[in-house]
């Protein structure tokens, strides 16, 4: 393939819209305040993005499968609380961790089964979930933060600083990105996910067990939400009842900016990663250039709209290339 063809293929990629916005934003912040790309600041970005990015990954695969999960913020807060309670009772860190992750899988599976079996839109079931898990968190803690004191080796594995710029959570995040990308693009399960989200009836007619696929996605989504929360609590040494409040919208925004469709069947893991970085970069950049923090919502809103328009535009153009007979 010649360079021209490679160039055309590149511009057709779904993630092009968010990549361009990302580059433009980085350049703009840097030109106003070079400290934006100082090593300290880059390190900060690489440190704080993974825990939220992990949640966005889970939300993305579920959205590709045609469902939404509004409870991720609450699970993000609930999981470390459960683990904190276990740690305070003296249970071994790793056992507590495993148990909590299994609990998150259970939460996701339950939400999935309810959605699939009853036909209630996932928006509603997970809205209920969001309130239930957040409510349980408040009941368990009485509104007070809890100390989160895992063993030192656990903290090291999950959030340790390995090299300058390289934190464990970043590696975990990247590993998950690679894993999920592989699952979606190169494995048959991924094909089923896109099918189920793209046109549920067709997937069903072709013999795919739609219910099973969706429940698996719900379970994964809650698992990753819990994992993200545990990572944040390990970093902060605290588990708080209001942790992750509002996170569901951040995660969905990152996915949507990255090209995932709210209606299902479309989206990529890489796109979400770029979308998540873009959100954090705007947040961070506004502080660096000393803008009042009120502006974050305004800019994220603008970016969402521009990115989605860009994504749609590219998609439509891709369709318009008429295949000649």
């Amino acid at each position: 393939m010649g360079f021209r063809e490679i160039g055309i293929q590149f511009f057709q990629k779904k993630e092009i819209s968010v990549s361009l916005i990302l580059m433009a934003t980085i350049l703009t912040f840097y030109s106003i305040q070079p400290k934006f790309l100082s090593p300290t600041n880059i390190e900060v970005l690489l440190k704080i993005t993974p825990e939220l990015g992990i949640v966005a990954l889970g939300v993305t695969i579920l959205m590709i499968g045609g469902e939404l999960d509004l409870s991720v913020g609450s699970v993000f807060g609930f999981a470390p609380l459960i683990m904190a309670v276990m740690l305070q009772s003296g249970i071994n860190t790793w056992i507590a961790f495993m148990f909590t992750l299994i609990l998150c899988l259970g939460i996701g599976t339950a939400q999935g089964i309810v959605t699939v079996k009853t036909g209630i839109p996932s928006f509603i079931t997970t809205l209920g979930g969001m309130l239930i898990w957040r409510g349980l968190a408040l009941v368990v803690t009485g509104g007070h933060p809890m100390y989160f004191t895992p063993s030192k080796d656990f903290a090291m594995v999950l959030t340790g600083k390995l090299y300058p710029f390289v934190y464990s959570q970043l590696l975990i995040f990247l590993a998950l990105v690679v894993l999920l990308h592989f699952l979606l693009e190169r494995h048959k399960f991924g094909n089923w996910v896109y099918a189920v989200g793209g046109k549920r009836d067709a997937a069903e007619a072709m013999g795919i067990n739609v219910a099973r696929v969706k429940v698996i996605l719900f379970a994964l989504c809650s698992l990753l939400a819990g994992l993200g929360g545990i990572i944040q609590s390990t970093r902060m040494s605290q588990a708080m009842p209001n942790q992750g409040d509002g996170l569901e919208f951040d995660a969905i925004a990152a996915a949507v900016i990255g090209g995932t469709s709210l209606f299902g069947g479309v989206g990529t893991v890489i796109g979400t990663v770029l979308g998540e970085f873009l959100s954090r970069i705007i947040e961070n950049g506004l502080i660096i250039i000393r803008a009042p923090s009120y502006y974050f919502r305004l800019y994220i809103g603008i970016v969402i709209i521009v990115a989605v328009i860009g994504n749609l535009y590219i998609q439509r153009r891709a369709l318009k290339l008429r295949v000649r007979e």
Partner: peptide, 30 residues
């Protein structure tokens, strides 16, 4: 060639505009 370049061009321009508006707005605000 034309459609591909025009697509890329349009998206790039809107992306840059978005980024620049974001940047300058924040700058002037702060």
């Amino acid at each position: 060639r034309r459609t591909a370049l025009s697509t890329a061009g349009k998206v790039a321009i809107s992306a840059v505009i978005a980024g620049v508006i974001a940047g300058f707005g924040g700058y002037y605000a702060g």
